[in-house]
């Protein structure tokens, strides 16, 4: 099968460390239209390695769009121009001969660049530590069918739980806000009966930590939803807002427990 090849000009962000000054590096590549975007970078790296040069650092793992490891800003859009996919699912057939492609890391104060295109997203884990769970120990739980959950409620929880934690929402937001990510987890538990006991403490704790980590505020531009590879809805943000306000206004507890 004859492969269709396309020639592209890459402008790749190179940065040696979190404090180093970065800059774009130019590369001309010729790549099969059937290749994925990351396979194109693999090829670029292979040629760099052969020439004894440092390959471009970028992260990826499952290459099926589910692990959330990969994430590049391609011509200004997190995960590239095609909606509802992760970078690893982007194929070169969506680019045209001779096109210039700018490749940048996810940029946010809360996501410092480690090297080149790899960023540190551990802030997301830190938010999850604050309350991204239902507090049950292993064992001693009721039978799985003991609580009936309406199909649409389960589906709504699933829609929120489908978040892959890639950080594209932060990268897309002009304020580098993490509201979509946080609200997805808050919502998953807010709609399920299992999440009710901690519903109003969870939202307060997670928002508090989110704020401390240097993410911006949400100004409802909905860029996050547009760029989310899983199409997580901003309805989740609305739900989180409501729960948070309700928690602050109605609950009697003044101090949050650690």
């Amino acid at each position: 099968m004859a492969e269709k090849m396309i020639n592209l000009k890459l402008k790749v962000w190179r940065q040696n460390g979190p404090k180093a000054v970065g800059a774009f590096e130019d590369h001309d590549v010729s790549v099969s239209a059937d290749s994925s975007f990351l396979e194109m970078l693999d090829e670029l790296n292979d040629s760099l390695e052969r020439n004894g040069k440092d390959p471009v650092v970028f992260e990826s793992d499952c290459r099926e769009g589910i692990c959330g490891t990969c994430g590049l800003v391609i011509n200004g859009q997190p995960h590239g121009p095609i909606p509802k996919i992760a970078t690893c699912q982007l194929h070169m057939r969506h680019f045209t001969e001779g096109q210039t492609i700018w490749i940048e890391p996810f940029r946010a104060k809360a996501f410092p660049v480690l090297k080149d295109l790899a960023v540190d997203r551990s802030a997301f884990d830190t938010i999850m530590h604050a309350g991204g769970y239902v507090s049950v120990n292993t064992g001693g739980v009721p039978d799985a069918n003991a609580i009936a959950i309406p199909k649409d409620v389960a589906a709504e929880a699933f829609d929120a739980a489908a978040c892959i934690g890639c950080g594209a929402c932060v990268a897309a937001c002009k304020n580098a806000s993490a509201m979509l990510f946080v609200s997805a987890k808050v919502s998953q538990f807010a709609v399920l009966p299992q999440g009710q006991p901690e519903r109003y403490t969870r939202v307060q704790k997670m928002v508090k930590v989110m704020d401390e980590l240097g993410f911006g505020s949400c100004t409802n531009t909905y860029a996050c939803e547009a760029e989310c590879p899983k199409g997580i809805s901003v309805k989740n943000i609305a739900r989180m807002n409501k729960d948070y306000i309700k928690a602050k206004v109605k609950t009697e507890k003044i101090e949050l427990e650690a």
């Binding site: 769970y133 239902v134 049950v136 292993t138 064992g139 739980v141 009721p142 039978d143 799985a144 609580i147 959950i149 309406p150 199909k151 389960a154 589906a155 929880a157 699933f158 739980a161 998953q188 538990f189 399920l192 299992q194 999440g195």
Partner: peptide, 13 residues
């Protein structure tokens, strides 16, 4: 299955 449901895993229903 019991454990996962208790954790809030949204299995199909």
């Amino acid at each position: 299955i019991d454990q996962c449901v208790a954790q809030g895993v949204p299995f199909a229903r």
